[in-house]
């Protein structure tokens, strides 16, 4: 019995091997004919790759150059879909906000359609590194660690961290917290990095997305919520019963568009674009169109950055 079983297995395996051999044989001849058919289309691509291999070690670049974007007619821009008033989806299903206002203009000046890709804070770098988006315009704070992974263009907004709490129990200093107090943060934000580094003893309650963190904060799952101060100020203005106890925490940072590391053509174009936009006071117009309603005019000059020349 056993012997017969073994022979069965052996013959079965050899049959499978033979079959795969035959199939791969067919496969390779097939692919050679298809390459011949597609040869015309592939000429332009192969030219690009040879250029890339000369300059960089990585043969498969994970980004599209400026020309490739223009040629395809579509640019993929990563934005937030739940962070009002910077990047959000309005009741008609359209993307709106300070970041989106800039994205619209970039699309217009490039002469291409925009494909908005909704991102979460923690996946912004991933999206660039894997080429899922060409530009990230999702309230992306410039930090040294991030600059090692992606290339930032010129900044277009100032930001610091802020801490908001319910107005009947306002947190004004992070040193006063008791052991049981938890601070809500969003995974992958500068607030998380800062608190992990500077206040390792504070218990953090981490959420994936803005919407979840917001609801958790409203439900008092944590004593306070640490985030970009622009965001917490907007929240306290838009909602009753909250107070920003710590309006500015940590170092003053800037927010800038980011592209995949090494995508110089797109980066250079973006920088020139940001300078020419700065010269026409574009970001003041952007502020007035998107942020004025929330913040009033008192924050306009502290938030907005207009670049007037290349560094």
């Amino acid at each position: 019995m056993k012997k017969r079983f073994l022979t069965k297995i052996v013959s079965g395996i050899s049959a499978v091997v033979l079959a795969t051999g035959a199939l791969t044989g067919c496969g390779s001849s097939d692919s050679s004919t298809t390459t011949a058919n597609n040869a015309d289309e592939q000429v332009s691509e192969s030219v690009d790759t040879t250029e890339n291999t000369d300059t960089a070690e990585e043969t498969s670049a994970n980004y599209r150059t400026l020309d490739e974007i223009k040629e395809s007619g579509v640019i993929n821009i990563g934005v937030f879909s739940d962070k009002s008033p910077f990047g959000y989806v309005d009741e008609n299903g359209d993307y709106q906000g300070y970041d989106v206002y800039l994205a619209e203009r970039i699309g217009e000046d490039l002469g291409v359609e925009i494909n908005y890709v909704s991102t979460e804070a923690a996946s912004r770098i991933e999206y660039l590194q894997t080429g899922k988006v060409d530009i990230i315009l999702a309230n992306f704070t410039v930090t040294e660690e991030r600059a090692e992974e992606v290339d930032f263009a010129l900044p277009y907004m100032n930001v610091a961290l802020g801490v908001i709490s319910h107005d009947d129990n306002v947190v004004t200093s992070l040193d006063d917290l008791t052991e049981d107090d938890e601070i809500i943060v969003i995974s992958g934000t500068t607030a998380e990095t800062y608190l992990e580094k500077e206040y390792p003893d504070i218990k953090l309650q981490k959420y994936d997305a803005y919407a979840e963190a917001k609801t958790a904060f409203e439900n008092r799952n944590g004593i306070a919520w640490a985030n970009d101060n622009t965001e917490v100020i907007a929240f306290s203005i838009e909602n009753e019963g909250y107070e920003v106890g710590i309006p500015s925490l940590g170092s003053a940072d800037t927010i800038a568009p980011a592209v995949t590391k090494g995508n110089e053509t797109l980066l250079d174009w973006l920088n020139e674009e940001l300078v020419s936009l700065g010269n026409e006071n574009f970001f003041h117009a952007d502020y007035e169109a998107t942020l004025l309603e929330t913040y009033g005019s008192e924050y306009e000059d502290t938030l907005v950055i207009e670049n007037t020349e290349l560094p």
């Binding site: 996946s123 770098i125 590194q129 660690e145 992974e149 995974s187 998380e192 309650q205 981490k206 994936d208």
Partner: peptide, 23 residues
């Protein structure tokens, strides 16, 4: 579980990627 702030395996990985980019 990451949606409700529980640091399970998945969320730990996502969080570390977001913090240090060692994907």
């Amino acid at each position: 579980f990451s949606a409700i702030s529980l640091m399970d395996l998945m969320f730990t990985a996502k969080d570390l990627i977001g913090l240090e980019y060692k994907t």
